[in-house]
Simulated scan of single mutants.
Amino acid sequence: MGVFMITGSGSGIGAALANHFAARGHELWLLARNESRAKTLWAQFPQSRILVADLAVPGALRGSLTAEVLPQRLDLLLHAAGVAESGRIVDVGAEVWEHTLAVNLIAPAELTRLLLPALRAARGQVVFMNSGAGVNAPPRLGAYAASKFGLKALAETLRAEEHEYGVRVTTVYPGETDTPMQVRLHEQFGLPYESETHMSPASVAAAVGMALSLPRDATVSDLMLRPGY
């Protein structure tokens, strides 16, 4: 079984991924933004290791996640944490841009950097949960789309740089998925929400598991998922 680290495992796709891999016996390392959240995660996943680090403050990750507390070998680093706020460019202030870019882009870059020695040791894999907004930027989601376009660039650069060390990199672009984030965005846009027209987080997790199951001589670089209804 592998050693897997997952961010954003408290709800939505991240929780589904944690459940998927826990059920298959993998050793999970989960990130919580504070001690209170850590207790909640431990109750959900009592067999996991919980590390406390706030992705909204990427510059503090190195101090929070010292080499002594990180795994020495890591088979999978899965970035599922993310934030989204709607608003037109004319209305969205710098604080929204800073927070969105910190959580969605800068923190994944820094966390990956800190864990690259462990990923190289295991010839592991990095998975970035992106979004359809990382391919086509919609109106009123400028900061979110910019962070996801940046995440795409991060993945492509990482793939090129780490190929010689045997580290594989996959970007997943889920379409509309039945998550708390989707519910909140529909409310902000004033749109009706119909969960049955969305993918389930479990379906997304199953697709990620399938991509990770490939033999060493192949990799899924980009995985596009859409609701099947």
Rank of each mutant, 00 (worst) to 15 (best):
E187N: 08
A109Q: 09
Q188N: 11
A155T: 01
R88L: 15
V103H: 04
R73E: 15
T197Q: 12
V204T: 04
L141C: 06
T177I: 12
T157D: 10
P138R: 12
L101I: 09
A109F: 09
V167F: 12
T112H: 11
A143K: 07
P138L: 10
L111R: 01
D75S: 09
L76Q: 05
Y173S: 03
L101E: 11
L151W: 04
R123L: 13
V183E: 14
G82F: 13
A155K: 04
P174V: 05
P201W: 08
I106K: 04
Y165P: 03
A121R: 05
E68I: 00
D75L: 05
A94N: 07
G166I: 10
L77D: 07
T197E: 01
G175P: 09
L76N: 12
P117I: 04
S195G: 15
A121E: 06
L191F: 13
A67S: 13
A160E: 04
A94E: 12
V69M: 06
G87P: 11
A67K: 11
I89L: 15
L78D: 10
S86H: 06
L115M: 10
P174M: 01
R88T: 10
Q125N: 00
H186A: 15
G93C: 04
T179I: 09
A109L: 11
D91Q: 05
L74K: 02
P138C: 01
L185I: 11
R120W: 04
E176P: 13
V92F: 05
E164H: 13
R120N: 01
S203V: 04
L77R: 14
G134T: 07
E85V: 02
E164P: 06
H198N: 12
G190F: 01
R123Q: 13
T112W: 05
H99C: 06
P201A: 13
S147L: 11
G142T: 09
H198W: 08
M210Y: 15
E98I: 11
L70D: 00
A145L: 07
R168C: 10
F128M: 14
A122E: 03
T170I: 07
V126K: 01
H163P: 02
R168V: 12
A102V: 03
G175M: 01
L116V: 15
Y144K: 06
A206T: 07
A155L: 03
V83W: 11
V204L: 08
T66G: 13
F128R: 04
A107F: 06
E85A: 03
E110I: 07
L119G: 02
E110H: 11
A207W: 09
S200A: 12
T66S: 13
A155M: 10
A155Y: 02
D75E: 14
W97T: 00
S200F: 02
L70M: 04
M199F: 02
A122C: 03
M199E: 03
A81T: 06
Q188I: 02
N136Q: 06
V83E: 04
E196W: 14
E176H: 05
L70W: 01
P138T: 08
N130E: 05
Q72W: 09
A206N: 02
F189I: 03
W97R: 06
L115Q: 07
V183T: 15
L76E: 03
A145Y: 02
V126F: 03
V126Y: 05
Y193A: 14
N136S: 05
D91L: 00
A211H: 07
T177R: 08
Q188E: 13
R113N: 12
N130I: 10
R120M: 07
V204P: 10
M210C: 15
